[in-house]
Design a protein around this nucleic acid. Sequence first.
DNA 1: GCCAACGTTGGC
DNA 2: GCCAACGTTGGC
Length: 170
Amino acid sequence: MTRDIRAEETPARIESTGFWLFKSEPGTYSIEDLAREGRTLWDGIRNYQARNFIRDTMRPGDRVLFYHSNADPPAIVGVARIIGSPVPDMTAFDRSNHGYDPKSRSENPTWFAIEIEFQSRLGDPVTLESMRSDPRFRGMLLLAKGQRLSIQPVIESHFRSALEVARHRD
DNA sequence: GCCAACGTTGGC
DNA sequence: GCCAACGTTGGC
């Protein structure tokens, strides 16, 4: 009845399987801001679906495509990674904050934040337009009509394709 | 600046 | 629980 558990030992480094796309308006927080600061707490999220991704799904090491929305042109402009674990979003407790939410209590927070760390800027942004015309990005949530989720799961092939496109252009 | 699409709120 | 009104997102 003994089992050889050595075959199941966890590798020294656990491979991350998570890939995401974070939208940000460059006038509010740009990839340049993240590059300069190195890391930032991604707070202010007030959408339940995005909240669930932060609170329940993200893992340290997950990789993030950083997307400039409401930009000219709208494009993926960099890569980041998730670090740390979800934490209560303190801005929801702050009456003076635009994201103040009286129904979020410190003993049972409604909203959560997570820290991300800068990895790289893309030499060439991967524009929304170029993704629409490239079959490698078919099915990407970002391209779906009417979708406006600011934190989206991304499949690995779409993540890789974004890096390929950015690399091949420079 | 326009406006379609979407999420949330609140009266009933 | 319905749904109209409202606010927001984000491409164009």
